[in-house]
Amino acid sequence: MSEKDEVLQQISEIKSHLVDKEAFFPYNYSACHVWSAIAVVLSLSMVSAYEYSILFGSVMMFVLISIGFMVEGSLTKKVNESYDIDDCTKRQRFIMMTFLMMSLFLILMSSVFASYKLYSLGLISWLFMISLGYFSIGFVLNIQRFSKMAQFNMIAALVLLAIGVYFELLLGYDSLYYTMVQATVIFGLAVVPTSIAYHQRKQENEAKVGCGV
């Protein structure tokens, strides 16, 4: 390698390290696996819980989401400890707040939809809104995979909604349409995020090995 190439490489490495600490503190991708598991449980048990009672369904949703936030909080704490950081960074707080607000809004919306037996609409709302959350994460953390997944999910949610409205399938839960919605939610909010988290973690580990000294 010529001296010029070495200097160019040096400049490029310096550039890549000129980052604010808010930007390089990592996101703990294990949280994605937890949220994926919650998405599966939520989509499979939503109807039974709301059929039992609206209050029971809402409480169950709240408990599931709270578990998710508690686990994510402890995972964030763990990853911050490896950086000797005690508080949440602005970036982590932004992610947490976005999802918290969205979840509370969705719990409220789901209970309204459930009271009219519009279970498919409830699931479609979760798919759309949580994907919007993932889109904001993708934007803030510059993870294109998250942004693309979110866009795909949001389009899928709109298509499902259009089909449901056009063929009047939104009511009830004993139809092929409801199963299709359930499968899309599981795929979009559980399978894909898990796979992305796996690839992101793998990529970060490879990058670490690559710049190891």
Partner: peptide
């Protein structure tokens, strides 16, 4: 040089954060 790049944008950083960021 990477260490100074990180410090110039953040003024101060914990030892552990530098260790993680620089691998």
């Amino acid at each position: 040089s990477k260490l100074l790049s990180l410090l110039i944008t953040n003024d101060e950083l914990p030892f552990k954060a530098l260790k993680e960021a620089l691998s």
